[in-house]
Structures are given as C-alpha cells and as structure tokens.
C-alpha cells in the first residue's frame, strides 16, 4: 500500500464530483456531487493523518463530517424550497437572477 494509490483515488473522486456539478441539470445530483467532492477531501485528510502518525488529521476529518451533515441539511431544505416555487428539479428553470430571463 503506497500513498499514491489514495492520492489517485481522491483526485478521481474530486474530478467525478466536479464533472457531476458541471454537466448534470438535476438539482439532487448536483447536491450529491458536492457531497462527493467534500468526501474526497475527507479521504485525503485521513491519508495525511495516517502519513503524519498524529491524530490531528483524524480530528479535522471528524469536524469535516459534521460540516458535511450541516451542508446536507441546508441544501436539502433549499431543494425543497426551490421545488415548491417552480414544481421542478431542473436547475435550468431557476434563472431569475440572470439578465436574459431564462432564455439561454
């Protein structure tokens, strides 16, 4: 087991999450992709903790898990609120703040 394996895996997870955020229009998949990116950072923190042989990285990863939980609660509430306003999960329909009134 070498650290490079874990580095490749964390990079791959972050890239997959970024691709999901950029390319999908379903709001829920955007949310899951953000979760995946946060989890890849978590994997990296645990790997560094194992390399450093100290508990600091573990504690930081634990705090990051708490932040992921807080982010999940807020994001799901926002999804419910957005669904209620337009009856849709399509992120292209939520473009009130752009200048061209929803036309791409």
């Amino acid at each position: 087991m070498i650290p490079e394996q874990f580095f490749i895996l964390a990079t791959l997870l972050f890239s997959i999450g970024l691709v999901g955020v950029v390319s999908r229009r379903n709001l829920f998949i955007v949310y899951l992709s953000i979760e995946l990116m946060l989890s890849s950072v978590n994997l990296l923190l645990v790997t560094f903790s194992r390399l450093d042989q100290s508990m600091n990285g573990t504690v930081m990863a634990l705090l990051l898990i708490a932040i992921i939980a807080a982010e999940a609660a807020i994001f799901l509430a926002v999804i419910i609120q957005l669904y209620r306003s337009k009856r849709s999960l399509d992120s292209d329909k939520f473009s009130q703040l752009t200048q061209n009134k929803g036309q791409l």
């Binding site: 994997l43 645990v46 194992r50 573990t58 634990l62």
Partner: peptide, 10 residues
C-alpha cells in the same frame, strides 16, 4: 477505506 487506513473511529 478509512478502516484500511487504520482509523477505526472515523
């Protein structure tokens, strides 16, 4: 993977 990195608590 966390278990493989010997972080049983995480």
């Amino acid at each position: 993977l966390f278990a493989l990195l010997e972080n049983s608590f995480l």
